[in-house]
Amino acid sequence: MNPPTIVFLSGKGGTGKTSVTAAFAVLGGHQVLADADVEAANLHILLAPRVEEQGEFEGSKVAIKDDSLCTRCGECREACRFEAIDEEFNIDPWLCEGCGACVHACPVDAIRLEPQVTGHWITGTSARGPFAGAELLPGEENSGKLVTLVRQKARQIASRVETPWVLVDGPPGIGCPVIASVTGVDGAVLVTEPTVSGLHDVERALGVVRHFGAPAALVINKWDLSPATAERIESWATERQLPVLARIPYDPAVPRAMVAGKSVVETDPEAPASRALRDAYARFRQLVLG
């Protein structure tokens, strides 16, 4: 049987999602870990995996035109729906989606699609278990394919080793990469802050998760920054039948641990945040493994 895959999401970045993922990884002891937050891959900073395998990722294509063949007929510009071809029939690589409409439209075969390296992936070993991760090159489109690749690598590893679960640090937002990180997972942990916007974001994230039929649970991070808002988020969660794993207090020990490249549960096990994270982990374990 495949071990369950759990993805950590936030609706947007910066809620402490990666710190929660890392803390669960530490408390979990040994398991397969994946960093699918490919636009802002941070988990490796806390897990420091030793790289064993790595590779380039060709995530998209871009249209290249041979100007010596171009007769300036304008068919390509007409065909492109992404406004990537200007009045001079130059193709703007930033706007090009790599769809190839221009290639098909060009009567003299002056345009071709070329694959582009848009990211890198690694697999390796961390103190908390095997690790798969990837990062997009800055400015490259996060199509979700790299997220899918990371999940495949993690799954391959999980089929070879003993692991209670696969923990995936997911991408922020609700777009394509998130969809790629959520499809077919066994559960999602949503990490939010007690802010008005945090609630708004996590609501949208829950929408995606439920759209794909995965069970979800919530962690309210830094709850004491606004106890009233935390209260509101909690009653929202109850209404939506979303179990709350724990409220974690704001704790300067968390960024301190990050500066040391560790999780707070390692550097400062008695800090208030560490205690709350252990509670959250215990409930998580119960929910996932029964």
Partner: peptide, 14 residues
């Protein structure tokens, strides 16, 4: 701008 470094961010920054 959208956070991150993907297409929507580029589209906003340009």
């Amino acid at each position: 701008c959208p956070p991150g470094t993907g297409c929507p961010t580029i589209a906003s920054l340009r």
